[in-house]
């Protein structure tokens, strides 16, 4: 992989080896293998030992988007909008207070919302079957 030096951040990987990190969605460490004739470019090879998760803020945002898409899919539009707004308001507070557990909190809330909806649908279905 060849990238512009301008896009690279020189750093040290978790094992202490010299590496560069480039600003990609999956921030992954690369080893510098050789310098091209063009001094502005370097050739990079992905380093398997040094996968680095994206920044916490980016991670929180991405997880929030994935889970709220699920909520959006399951609930009716008005409910989904208010629920996602509520989750956004409270999740921001939780990330500020306790970032380590905020993700699990969000996952648990979304599971609860979706399972509650599924139980309601199942209940309606059973009542309809019984003719009530």
């Amino acid at each position: 992989m060849t990238v512009s030096k301008k896009r690279t951040i020189h750093t040290v990987g978790p094992s202490g080896r010299k590496a560069v990190r480039i600003d990609l969605p999956r921030q992954t460490y690369f080893d510098v293998i050789m310098t091209h004739d063009d001094p502005d470019h370097v050739t990079l090879v992905e380093v398997k030992w040094a996968f680095v998760p994206t920044s916490p803020a980016h991670d929180h945002g991405r997880l929030f988007k994935i889970l709220t898409n699920l909520v959006d899919f399951v609930l009716d539009p008005d409910s989904a909008e208010s629920t996602i707004g509520d989750l956004s308001e409270h999740y921001a507070r939780r990330v500020a207070e306790d970032p380590g557990h905020a993700k699990w909190w969000l996952v648990a809330q979304v599971i609860r919302i979706i399972s509650g909806r599924a139980l309601d649908v199942f209940g309606h279905f059973m009542r309809a079957r019984m003719g009530k």
Binding site: Q109, I111, I113, G116, R117
Partner: peptide
């Protein structure tokens, strides 16, 4: 109290 529980 969990938000999901209150929502449901």
């Amino acid at each position: 109290v969990g938000y999901g529980t209150v929502h449901v």
